[in-house]
Write a protein that binds this DNA or RNA. Sequence first.
DNA 1: AAAACAAATGTAACCGGTTACATTTCCATC
DNA 2: GATGGAAATGTAACCGGTTACATTTGTTTT
Lengths: 332, 332
Amino acid sequence: MTNIRKVAELAGVSVATVSRTLKSPDIVSPTTREKVLRAVDQAGYKPNLMAVQFRSQRTYNLVVLVPTIANTFFARVISGIQEAAQERGYGVLLCNTLGNEAMETQYASLVSTRQADGVIQLRAFNPFSENAFPAGSPLPMINACEVLDDAPCPTVKLDNRAAAREVTEHLIALGHRRIGMIKGPRRSPLTRDRQQGYQDALSAAGIPLDERLLCPGDFTPLSGYQAAETLIALAERPSAIFCESDEMAIGAMSRIKEAGLRVPEDISVAGFDDIAFASYSDPPLTTIAQPAETFGREAVAMLIEVLEGRQVNNLMLPYSLVSRKSTAACRP
Amino acid sequence: MTNIRKVAELAGVSVATVSRTLKSPDIVSPTTREKVLRAVDQAGYKPNLMAVQFRSQRTYNLVVLVPTIANTFFARVISGIQEAAQERGYGVLLCNTLGNEAMETQYASLVSTRQADGVIQLRAFNPFSENAFPAGSPLPMINACEVLDDAPCPTVKLDNRAAAREVTEHLIALGHRRIGMIKGPRRSPLTRDRQQGYQDALSAAGIPLDERLLCPGDFTPLSGYQAAETLIALAERPSAIFCESDEMAIGAMSRIKEAGLRVPEDISVAGFDDIAFASYSDPPLTTIAQPAETFGREAVAMLIEVLEGRQVNNLMLPYSLVSRKSTAACRP
DNA sequence: AAAACAAATGTAACCGGTTACATTTCCATC
DNA sequence: GATGGAAATGTAACCGGTTACATTTGTTTT
């Protein structure tokens, strides 16, 4: 492979001059610049970026820890990350962690071993050990989407509690009083916040909480399908179900219709995320639209700020209720 | 940051001994090994992998060029890539190209600039220029899923022609004779092969080809929705539609039902890919199951073979027709 | 006890850039 | 033409590992 020394020899100058010609062309004379560029061209020289990175101790790679890439919402977030990173000259090292903490820790250590400059964590878990970095210096990490309560780094999130409250209020406004909820994994702060919002709406409307109406899921269509099965088997069946993700809502609708019930006539269903399929389900799904790509873009922008030593503030992104045909007035 | 020299000093040995202790422990004496490991521990030493990579000229990163990560099928392929790469100690640099050739070329050049060791291309396009590598030496690339006819590298694919023929024959066996097809982008070899299979089945059954039944799409639900609109507006409406992807099939079903027609009673719909939502659509979708994760895993395995200088053969993966409720006998 | 050889360890070059510092070149000024 | 100072270029150290080769230490053989 041609290296900078070959080019220098070819151009009849020193390696320093070649380096300068490429990095700060303005400080070499036009004559020399010409000569060097011609040699670069002739030799087909491309700098070995590994050497550049090694020297500068920057990799321009970001690690992204995603619970599961197979989830449509995360796929959109990653698209946003990818685009923003690309624009700024960063690469994206993707890690599909499946919630495996050991794997997250291992990938995060790419930063300690200088294979990446920072981490974007899309899950509520800190993959860095206590002493991974000198105390006082900011962690090169951004926590987005599902964030830790006491995140050791800047966060980008959505007001899940308010959003869940708004969906629930929408259902209550339609006359529903028995509203089931298909939740996310038990320990997730995201699930806790959304449940809080759900309860806020209920108590504001004077509806007592019935624990039997709360079913855990794991954000997959299958778990929504199974949870719906439990809910429709209840003696007092809910007339509406709020699902913490569209994927679960789609699974739930499938099970509801399999049981010979209609959506929304017999049971209203609402989701969360507004994935592409939400518009194409039967019926189209009422849901909370999240700016998924923006999560990704903002996380990248913030991480780069951190990497460059600047101060950044936490960010709260907007959501909006999208009312489609899967929710309708409660029929007594 | 602690480096190997600090450790050497701490242990009272040379840097070479430290390096050897970590790379080939068996060639240093147990006493020294002990001493060095203690020093490594005490100093909290982690090798700077950037230096290791620089020295060895291997990055252990693979570039993955994916047309769009927002597509559920590709998300699964990437999961497979990710897992296999992780197991073998490789990282994955993801590039969501949106079919942008300039971007693909740019990302592929990460290999020339030594920021990655090889490329997995999931689209029918060669991102390397003629002279990117010395003639004769094999391209560090695998072309998977949608492959070039004259790929300059090993390929992993599925017999799209045979699979499309099988779906079409399934529809013909149900009595359908006017079978619409919602295709992929015009120039894709994948689309061409699937259309061939469709035509094979038609001509074997003595059904003449009607060009009006062929609608192009782009694999998104929206394009399926729009194509279905065209098809159901035809004077002689098809009684079945074969879609080249499940995403388009879901969009198509949505439009069909919006028009007041039923699936499968009025129009049968078949897809391709068997994404997670295919089981949960209403009705559940008849489709061709592709081993998406296997595509990814095999591509990684093959690429590493190539990188290590071994010979590899092209691979053809199996498919299977999954018959669900979206296809039924044609009613005259 | 000396010779012969293996095992363990040390020394220093090397990978390919970047850049501080040294040196040379060039032009303006007196 | 000598002097000063800026501009252009060159020299070589450096980043942090790896490894060929040299050297030392230890063990076996005669």
